[in-house]
Design a protein around this nucleic acid. Structure first.
Length: 499
RNA sequence: GCCCCCAUCGUCUAGUGGCCCAGGACGUAGCCCUCUCAAGGCUAAAACACGAGUUCGAACCUCGUUGGGGGCACCA
């Protein structure tokens, strides 16, 4: 636990420009954990100041993803709160007002340079192998002059007036002090010519107005962090604690995820998008456990965590600043762990939609019986269909020669299958022991290994060479169906024997 | 090119100067259990990027090198 923090106010502030992925999920999770642990508030703020990049479905998917993971926010666009609105597109005037404050304080200035001039400038600088920055042309303008041109309707932006001399030191919670020469920091645009604020202004203003105490954000903000320090100090505001989270790398560890990689990943049955993971049969509990451990650790041995555990044990002090490669194999392991951690009732409930999706009609009572025998065999919920679909299908679909036992010929197989039928016909399908002893005795009589007999019966009864334990499966399926299927198998085997 | 960040097994990581010829987990290999497949148990191989310092002593501190990542937009 983070050494006794007072209640924090934290926020997750995504821009609705695309699908919600694991990296966002983890940032949101850490924020959420800190809020719950300290009894503070977790806010959701939508950073949609760029209308050009706005994707309408993105916000919906974002909220669904967070809720699926179990990350409920205390304040946000849909639930409201005392510091709203929580959508930046509804706060345009606020930012403009604060930008003007900065101009009055001589910490910002109007700039009338055209995009064309800026492009040319950039080109020249690149050719001269210099850093690409604004050259400060409009800094020279007198405030009166600038204001006059603004009033005349001349297109303009507002730029931050980064000090030319000296340096700034900002503090990242994980990395300590970071000192940067001011001359390497650009006069970033705060407000665009269309009047909309950019991230650097909007986020700082909102974090202040919304009383944010801790900013946990992606480390891609590290490079503009000094600028943010300047902006906050220009206003004279109290700085929140900044924690820059490491980035996720693609599984190979070489670079971050690209479109191409995402497509390939889906081929392999994985995805970095949270909504996809739900479809693929992963548990939100497993996703949370897994991503929590990419960049954070509790000790040198504990790896299984529920959300409740994480709320209790999460700590900023055990965050790891280095980038982490996404490892889906380990994710599978965590999903298995959490599936086994589910109660029978819960597993039955969660697995049901996957059967329905496969066009099967599972009865709840059967599902409840099946859950315990498939529980330790599942990697994903979707695996249940493959493993136990035979309970709900009437038509068996398998190659008849699979009915020939290991190291046996067709006629031996047919014979022992027939004898199994006769044996089972006279038994009550109640006790596991009754069936098991009978079948084992039969195998012994015939000089067969139990595995040989069970193998044949497994195919006959389940149509699969891999299945949940045979006897249990037969009991759940019921005497009638088991006999029917063996009968069917006998018919399939006969032509092979030559009958 | 410029700026910033990072650096322990293949991967996620523990480790904050002596407890470490480096611990756990996934994966891999072998064995046990076993009606298939799993699950579970045991065992094994597997790492402090490199080079200089500082120190009685360095995975841990400093510097450099190399490697990796991020940023350099009227995107966030």
């Amino acid at each position: 636990m983070t050494e006794k923090l007072p209640p924090v106010r934290v926020r997750f502030a995504p821009s609705p420009t695309g699908r919600t992925h694991l990296g966002s999920g983890r940032t949101a999770l850490y924020n959420y954990l800190l809020a719950r642990q300290t009894g503070g508030q977790f806010l959701l703020r939508i950073e949609d100041t760029d209308q050009k990049r706005y994707v309408p479905e993105a916000e919906q998917e974002l909220m669904e993803s967070l809720r699926w993971l179990g990350l409920e926010w205390d304040e946000g666009p849909d639930v409201g709160g005392p510091y709203g609105p929580y959508r930046q597109s509804e706060r345009k005037e606020i930012y403009l007002e604060y930008a003007k404050q900065l101009i009055e304080k001589d910490k910002a200035y109007y700039c009338f340079c055209s995009p064309e001039r800026l492009a040319r400038l950039r080109e020249q600088q690149m050719q001269a192998k210099q850093a690409t920055m604004y050259d400060g042309l409009c800094r020279q303008l007198t405030p009166e002059d600038a204001l006059r041109r603004v009033k005349q309707g001349e297109p303009h932006v507002i730029r931050f007036k980064t000090p030319r001399e000296g340096s700034i030191t900002v503090r990242d919670y994980l990395r300590g002090d970071i000192t940067v020469e001011n001359r390497t920091i650009d006069d970033y645009i705060l407000v665009k010519s269309d009047g909309w604020a950019l991230y650097h202004l909007a986020a700082m203003v909102d974090d202040h107005l919304m009383r944010i105490t801790h900013v946990l954000r992606s480390s891609e903000w590290l490079s503009t962090f000094p600028l943010h320090g300047h902006i906050i100090r220009a206003f004279g505001w109290q700085e929140p604690v900044f924690v820059h989270l490491s980035v996720f790398l693609k599984p190979s560890g070489k670079g971050k995820m690209s479109k191409r990689e995402s497509a390939q990943l889906l081929q392999d049955g994985y995805s970095i998008f949270i909504k996809d993971l739900e479809q693929l049969g992963y548990l939100p509990e497993a996703v949370v456990n897994w991503i929590a451990l990419m960049g954070w650790s509790y000790d040198d041995k504990t790896e299984f965590f529920t959300m409740q555990d994480l709320i209790e044990k999460f700590s900023l002090d055990h965050l790891n600043p280095s980038p982490a490669a996404i490892n889906f194999t380990k994710f599978d392991h965590f999903n298995g762990l959490h599936i086994r951690h589910l109660s029978v009732e819960e597993l039955a409930k969660r697995v049901k939609p996957f059967f329905l999706r496969a066009g099967l009609q599972p009865e709840d009572t059967k599902l409840l019986q099946i859950a315990p025998i498939i529980r330790e065999r599942l990697v994903t919920l979707d695996d249940a269909v493959e493993m136990a679909g035979f309970f709900f299908r009437d038509q068996m679909d398998y190659e008849a020669d699979l009915l020939v036992g290991k190291n046996m010929n067709p006629s031996e197989s047919l014979q022992v299958l027939q004898e199994s039928y006769d044996l089972l016909k006279n038994l009550a399908f109640e006790e596991k022991e009754t069936l098991e002893t009978a079948l084992r005795n039969l195998a012994e009589q015939k000089g067969l290994k139990a595995g040989q007999l069970f193998g044949i019966l497994r195919i006959a009864v389940t149509g699969q060479s891999v299945s949940p334990p045979l006897i249990e499966s037969m009991l759940i399926l019921g005497k009638e169906k088991v006999l029917e299927r063996i009968q069917d198998a006998l018919k399939r085997l006969q032509p092979i024997v030559g009958l």
